[in-house]
Design a protein around this nucleic acid. Structure first.
Length: 540
RNA sequence: GUGAGCGUAGCUCAGCUGGUAGAGCAUCGGUCUGUGGCACCGAGGGUCGCGGGUUCAAAUCCCGUCGCUCACCCCA
């Protein structure tokens, strides 16, 4: 078959889906270094890793993050995790069937009837989420209309097409399984797992960290992807001591230091508490105060369209508007720090003391509010000036009510942060202090059939010593082998040719300065001990 | 969802007062069958994002569309 005759789909070029990307070597080495470093810092604070699924019931995120937030309302990757079996099979058949013949139409009617019957029954048995009665009734009457249709009507394509489409449409949107979502963040999953496994019965506060991909259907831009990697940590337990908050933040500044990122700002704020039986509810009171202020005509009229909308939907967010012309107005708005209840104010003051005790420099920002519903009291964010518009390296805060809200035990408090790994990597690259790269320790240049078995054997020996060894799969000319070793950035070349086999001595050449020496096979392992210095460490 | 900028080889780009493609780097081979980084020579690699229009003729002009990037929204 000639190239031109190939069907279109065979020549189609696939590419990574919008907002996703491939991390290739050598860049991936920096990611690995960073993850290793983050793990090491968090483990030094006695956090343990938790691994949760990357998809959960949609309801979990809707409840925790807040149904009104953009994340839940329009940015989640959700799908119906449908039941298998006859019902699901029918759904596919009905939705996809194109029936022109009368036999096809009769089959379609029979399938639709069976679908109605099975769906109603399964719904009653609670095998599937309850099916909407109205939908089923609509289906039933449409199917009945088709069944009762006169011969005249059945040859009327328009009539049949309309009814069939109506049936297909209803079947298509009928949920037969659980609505499932690719996680847009991990706190909800961690809290779910904490509750599910009764972790509150474990001794002390649970200090957990996670590393992994998150998914949000946003428009991609610098530092923002649809699949992005977050590293985060949560502390769950009975205590809400400000020292917990401070230590969590200190852990982050430790990590920044290890990554040699010097240009950053730590912003902190308290956003008060919600109105619950145990709490004073200083936030809702403040929100109303703020809203009232923003509604004043002389202020409202100066706000942009987005901020005007926020006055009703989420007045707090007016505070972090980026519009230059609104900055003057925002400066004069009442600050939440001046309207905290006594408990929240004390908690906030203690947090600041604890940070000072740890010598963590911070900036208070009355304008720092959080986007997710579950936050209360402490909020913080670390921004970097080198990242562009998406300048938040990490952010977090306290969420004392979340465990209970998701059905867990009463009185469990929580605080956590998440950092955007993609952005951290950008910041590390920008800071230019750390360069991680993979290197080849030993390149084995073998020449001739007689040398090959020795090369294979020694490659295995050296790999057993944890060295990175490149063994060419095919014989290469000597010059070529050296050139290849050089381009790979190999540190040493182990030369095994006719001369070496004849004399029973190996040749080792150091590429940096070209020095080489003869060595016996027995001495080879010792030559490379202690192990060649770290392959993926910070360089300078 | 909104707006702006940009799509030519694996990468960076030239060619754009219309005449059906070029450079550098990279890759592979050779000069060079036991000594790399250099040099020289050569090769492969592109339906100029895709579709339509104008024209004798379109990478070039016009329209549409898709993609990428950045910003807004929102958020890590």
């Amino acid at each position: 078959m000639s190239e031109a005759a190939k069907p279109e789909n065979e020549r189609r070029k696939f590419r990574a889906i919008k907002g996703t990307r491939d991390i290739l070597p050598p860049d991936s080495a920096l990611w690995n270094w960073f993850e290793k470093t983050a793990r090491s810092v968090m483990e030094s604070y006695n956090f343990g890793e938790i691994r949760t699924p990357i998809f959960e019931e949609t309801e979990l995120f809707a409840r925790s993050i807040g149904g009104e937030t953009d994340i839940v309302a329009k940015e989640m990757f959700s799908f119906e995790d449908r039941a298998s079996g006859r019902l699901a099979e029918l759904k596919d058949i009905i939705v996809l069937r194109t029936s022109k013949s009368s036999a096809g139409l009769r089959a379609f009617i029979a399938e639709a009837a069976e679908f109605i019957e099975l769906a109603t029954e399964s719904s009653r048995r609670r095998d599937i989420p309850s099916v909407d009665e109205e939908k089923i009734d609509a289906l039933r009457s449409n199917v009945a209309a088709l069944e009762k249709a006169s011969h005249q009507q059945l040859v009327d394509h328009e009539f049949v097409r309309m009814l069939s489409n109506a049936i297909r449409a209803v079947v298509y949107i009928t949920a037969l399984g659980t609505f499932t979502t690719l996680r847009p963040e991990a706190t909800a999953s961690v809290v779910r797992a904490y509750i599910e496994h009764g972790m509150h019965t474990r001794p002390g506060d649970q200090k957990l960290y996670y590393v992994g991909p998150m998914f949000r259907r946003e428009r991609p831009q610098k530092g923002r992807y649809r699949q992005f990697c977050q590293i985060g940590a949560e502390v769950l337990g009975a205590s809400d001591a400000p020292a917990i908050d401070a230590e969590l933040i200190q852990m982050l500044t430790d990590l920044l230091e290890r990554c040699q990122i010097e240009k950053y700002t730590l912003l902190i704020n308290s956003i008060g508490c919600p109105d619950t039986p145990e709490r004073k509810g200083c936030r809702p009171k403040y929100v109303e105060l703020l809203r009232a202020k923003l509604r004043e005509p002389e202020i409202f009229s100066k706000l942009g369209a987005d901020s005007q909308r926020r006055v009703e939907t989420n007045p707090l967010r007016v505070m972090d508007s980026k519009l230059p012309e609104e900055q003057g107005i925002i400066e004069k708005l009442p600050k939440i720090s001046e309207h905290l209840c006594a408990d929240c104010r004390e908690h906030y003051e203690e947090l600041k003391k604890e940070l000072k005790l740890r010598e963590v420099p911070f900036t208070e920002s009355p304008r720092l509010v959080r986007g997710l519903d579950y936050y209360m009291r402490t909020t913080f964010e670390i921004t970097s000036p080198i990242l562009g518009a998406q300048n938040a390296l990490c952010g977090g805060g306290r969420y004392d009510g979340l465990v209970e809200m998701l059905g867990g035990p009463k009185g469990i408090k929580g605080i956590g942060f998440a950092l955007g790994e993609d952005r951290f990597i950008d910041a590390i690259v920008e800071a230019k202090k750390i360069h991680a790269a993979r290197t080849v320790d030993v390149f084995i240049a073998w020449m001739g059939e007689r040398a090959y078995p020795t090369a294979v054997r020694l490659a295995h020996v050296l790999r057993g010593e944890k060295h990175t060894v490149e063994l060419p799969p095919e014989e290469m000319k000597f010059r070529k082998a050296l050139e290849r070793a050089d381009k790979m950035g190999a540190r040493y070349v182990l030369i095994i040719g006719e001369d070496e086999i004849a004399s029973d001595m190996l040749t080792i050449k150091r590429l940096a300065d070209g020095k080489q020496e003869k060595i016996s096979e027995e001495a080879l392992v010792d030559f490379f001990r202690p192990p060649v210095p770290t392959k993926e460490g910070p360089g300078s």
